[in-house]
Simulated assay, not measured.
Amino acid sequence: MTRYVMQRILGMLAVMFTVVTIVFIIVRVAPGDPAAVMLGPDATAADIAGLRARLGLDQSLPTQYVLFLGQLLRGDLGQSIFLNMPVLSALAERAEPTFFLTLFSILIASAIALPVGILSAYKRGSLFDQVATTFAMFAASIPSFWLGLILIQVFAVRYGWMPASGYGGPDASFLERLRHLVLPALALGIVSSALITRFTRASMLDVLNDDYVRTARSKGMGEWGVVMKHAFKNALIPVLTVVGLTAALLISGAVVTETVFSLPGIGNLVVSAVLRRDYPVIQGALLVIAALYVLINFLIDMLYLAIDPRVRY
Results as ranks from 00 to 15, higher is better:
2 T>I: 13
4 Y>D: 04
4 Y>G: 02
9 I>C: 10
11 G>Q: 01
14 A>V: 11
18 T>Q: 12
19 V>T: 13
20 V>A: 14
21 T>R: 13
23 V>H: 08
26 I>M: 15
27 V>N: 08
30 A>K: 07
32 G>Y: 06
33 D>Y: 07
34 P>M: 06
35 A>I: 07
38 M>A: 14
45 A>W: 07
46 A>M: 04
52 R>N: 01
55 L>N: 06
56 G>D: 12
58 D>P: 00
60 S>A: 09
60 S>C: 03
62 P>C: 10
62 P>M: 09
63 T>F: 07
64 Q>T: 03
65 Y>H: 04
65 Y>K: 06
66 V>D: 00
67 L>W: 00
67 L>A: 05
67 L>M: 00
68 F>L: 04
70 G>Y: 10
71 Q>Y: 09
73 L>V: 15
74 R>M: 15
76 D>H: 12
77 L>D: 04
79 Q>K: 03
80 S>W: 09
81 I>D: 08
81 I>L: 13
82 F>L: 11
84 N>Q: 09
87 V>E: 08
88 L>N: 10
89 S>F: 13
92 A>M: 14
97 P>I: 01
100 F>G: 06
100 F>V: 09
104 F>Y: 13
105 S>M: 11
105 S>K: 13
106 I>D: 10
113 A>W: 01
113 A>H: 03
115 P>H: 07
115 P>M: 07
119 L>Q: 05
120 S>V: 03
123 K>H: 10
127 L>Q: 04
134 T>P: 03
136 A>T: 08
141 S>I: 05
142 I>K: 07
146 W>P: 00
153 Q>T: 08
153 Q>L: 12
153 Q>A: 15
154 V>T: 12
158 R>P: 00
159 Y>D: 06
159 Y>M: 07
162 M>N: 04
162 M>R: 02
162 M>A: 14
165 S>M: 12
169 G>V: 01
170 P>L: 12
172 A>L: 11
172 A>P: 09
172 A>I: 10
175 L>H: 02
175 L>C: 04
175 L>I: 07
180 H>D: 15
182 V>C: 07
183 L>T: 01
184 P>M: 05
184 P>H: 02
190 I>V: 14
191 V>Y: 04
195 L>P: 00
198 R>P: 00
199 F>E: 03
200 T>W: 00
205 L>V: 03
205 L>Y: 09
206 D>M: 01
207 V>N: 02
207 V>Y: 05
208 L>H: 05
210 D>G: 01
211 D>T: 03
213 V>N: 05
214 R>S: 13
217 R>F: 11
222 G>Y: 08
223 E>A: 13
223 E>Y: 08
224 W>L: 15
226 V>I: 08
229 K>R: 15
229 K>N: 12
230 H>K: 05
231 A>C: 12
232 F>Y: 13
241 T>A: 11
244 G>K: 10
249 L>K: 05
250 L>K: 09
250 L>E: 06
252 S>F: 05
253 G>W: 14
253 G>S: 08
255 V>H: 06
255 V>K: 12
259 T>Q: 14
264 P>T: 12
266 I>M: 12
268 N>T: 14
269 L>I: 11
269 L>E: 11
273 A>G: 02
274 V>Q: 12
275 L>C: 02
277 R>T: 03
279 Y>H: 05
279 Y>L: 11
281 V>D: 12
285 A>H: 15
290 A>N: 01
297 N>E: 01
303 L>T: 05
303 L>Y: 06
304 Y>K: 07
309 P>D: 14
310 R>S: 08
